[in-house]
Write a protein that binds this DNA or RNA. Structure first.
Lengths: 248, 248
DNA sequence: CGCGCCTTTGAAGGAGCTCAATTTAGGTGG
DNA sequence: CCACCTAAATTGAGCTCCTTCAAAGGCGCG
């Protein structure tokens, strides 16, 4: 397979016109039942696409908030920082998911968004989104659902951090990843982790050594096979049995 | 001042017309710079007020989502349940704050909201809110900010649960309460906890004994005085010094 | 006044952390 | 293509903070 033209353009951030109607993530990004003209309006709202290379920031805490972002391809993490240098990964985001909603509440973003692999995102200027969602009811509804889903997801993470043991946290994490890969048409049983043990640990409220030990233990038990970042789930039921078993 | 009619109606849930323009929580609930007619429209959206007695549920996980709620007076907790019976308090809400946004993403609420003292709430039918926020830009903006603020708050809790030690969590909790009471015109230094040690512990990812011990320790150090649920903060600076001191 | 619930306090145990050494993978340049 | 180098991952041993289990004390409410 030959290298496509785009890759010889010597710029980091390629910008190109969005084409939501052609996008294979429509179901994730857009509400159902839009008319052709409405889709056209939404395409005009999605300003440009942008490439973000691995380890580059899409935005940083403190930067002026102007737009939210839809991930077209790739993988991101978001993290928040404390003044003393401690940080916590608040989420991992993949294609079809939305980034940047933390910035709506104020003038500025409150967390960092970093690409964990070369990615492509759609820029959605927030003023445009608000204007359009005043006109298109289905878009308004959809956007509210996306925000609410983020709140519900956060509650799930709080549950995880507040009540689960290390192995249960990691099992939950793996099952969640598997489920999201499935939704996107990838294998539920075999995937590549884009993040380090340290980043997983930060997200799960554990140290990287604990994450590594839990992986090893899952492998010993025959639930998964681990080779660095390559994961194969061998026994979903086994993993699920680790859930719903309270410590006390 | 005589007792108004409403109080002689012999029902648990009193319903009466909302009057946002008279409400002393306007700054918390409503955006700035609305015209009189816009405020009138919003008053008509806020269907009714409702009383919720201590220990009563405002809504339960699984119940059909139809409205969000603004707390007029009182105090609530929200919690999520796992199938195995474990639960986690996801937040404590007081006057001027909004409840129920977890339900927007689906058909049903995903958590329980329970009054921790006799409370009064304003019912905001969600369909009305969406319709009005298509017409009043400032309302739309305000609502988006409220949702986003909830997301940012959740990130803060994740940070707390993921990276902080027990005493730091409790100090953060007390300082947060103090700050919110101040905003509402109450004393920053002296207040009554509406929740049990167990509920605080659930929220902070700790056991009730750990919470109790931390309270005692704070008292020994002279940071606060504790008498059951009555808290007096004696040394804010001392409490703040507990923050920003990483474990490692 | 007595009962139940909440809180406090103590002592022992354990899950996960810290510190440290080793192995492995992936990228770089000769 | 291989040797080198660095970052990431694995594994072990000891320790710590929080939990668990248990008992006693206090407050509020019928």
């Amino acid at each position: 397979m030959h290298t496509p033209n785009k890759s010889i353009i010597p710029v980091t951030l390629t910008t190109l016109k969005a084409a939501c109607s052609q996008c294979n993530l429509r179901e994730l990004c857009l509400p159902y039942g839009l008319s052709a003209s409405e889709i056209e309006q939404i395409e005009s709202m999605v300003g440009v696409r942008r490439r973000v290379k691995r380890q580059q920031h899409l935005y940083r805490a403190g930067e002026t908030f102007e737009a939210i972002y839809a991930i077209r391809s790739g993988f991101f993490k978001t993290d928040v920082l404390l003044e003393d240098g401690r940080d916590q990964v608040t989420g991992f985001q993949m294609a079809g998911e939305i980034l940047g909603m933390d910035g709506i509440s104020g003038e500025a973003h409150t967390c960092n968004a970093v690409a964990l692999e070369d990615s492509e995102i759609c820029v959605i200027p927030f003023a445009h989104l608000e204007r359009l969602s005043r006109e298109i009811q289905a878009l308004q509804r959809h956007f509210h659902q996306v925000m609410s889903r983020e709140i519900v997801r956060d509650h799930g993470v709080m549950m995880l951090l507040g009540t689960m043991r290390a192995e249960e946290r990691l099992a939950t994490f793996l099952l969640n990843l598997s489920q999201r890969f499935t939704t996107r048409g990838y294998s539920p049983a075999e995937f590549h982790l884009r993040m380090t043990r340290d980043e997983i640990g930060s997200y799960l409220g554990l140290k990287l050594e604990t994450v590594s030990r839990a992986f090893s233990r899952f492998q010993d038990e025959g639930f998964i096979s681990v080779q660095q970042k390559h994961i194969r789930i061998l026994d979903i039921a086994g993993l699920k049995k680790l859930l719903n078993h309270p410590p006390s």
